[in-house]
Amino acid sequence: MTTPTAPSGRRRSIPNLTGYVMLLPAVAVIVLLVIVPLTVIARDSFAISDPLGGNLGGFTFDNYGKLFDPVYAKTLGYSLGMAALNAAVCTVVGYIVAYYIANRPAKTQPVLLVLVIIPFLTDFLVRTFAWITLLGSGGPFITLLKLFGVEATSFVPSQAAVTLSLLYAFLPVAIFPIYASMRAIDPSLREAAADLGAGWWQTHARVFVPLSAPGLASSVMLTFVPTLGVFVIPVLLGGGKDPLVGNLIVTLFTEFRNEPLGAALSMVVLVLMLASVAGAGLLLRAAGRRNARAARNGKEGTA
């Protein structure tokens, strides 16, 4: 193993077309079924709609303007609030769980991870209606409350049920990336921090949170905007009283058939997602630079 194997030099030096040909089917799928459709709704979002919501073509900003109507603005505001709350809770709880798993013995870690994977892979609808069983009338939660003398009939539909179910749906998605970056942290850093007199709070604020920043950023990215698009949970656990943007999009496309307005709303969601991806990217680059500088300074200090 002393001869440096020029990484498969022979194979990679053949600049043939085979590689590109192999990418062709995937490129076709992405272009035809992602890029083209997104371009079409981007175009539709500026189209003039007739009073019934039909697409008349042309160019207008009216659809985006309509989103400021109190009806839509209220849903948008409420959704952004719920999404921010969900992303924040998922990321904080995800951090706590990821830290816990990463600090178990190497043998227990896979077991705990599987315990997160099982609910994650379980059918989304099953995970959602299981909450109806749990919190609904006659469910275990109500029965338990009655034992303590609390009179209650059902927690479904309720805002609390929606919030819990959103957390339940997105928590695993938050745990995985945070755990992935937590696992890469040298465990001796914790002892080093303790030896240097850092308390729990300092150890996390100065060591673990900065080093797991990539995971935390991914967690926010994977929970914030996707929460906006959920439409099943507000209907099943909230009784449809407080719709999220997802419900609005579904209604605009399948019931009102107002494509231009639905397209504009979809574009808002898409742009928010792109912004959050870009934001996470910038944040990570800044963190990377800071860490590199810190490492350099550290080296100079010891030299």
Binding site: R12, I14, P15, I30, A263, S266, M273, V277
Partner: peptide, 28 residues
Amino acid sequence: RFRVKGRGFFLGAILIPLIVPEIVLGVA
């Protein structure tokens, strides 16, 4: 396994569906 120019570009393109919110992709 092949030397492909613009590898990062292709990979990025193929991962687009992971970033686009599903509901947006659905209506599109």
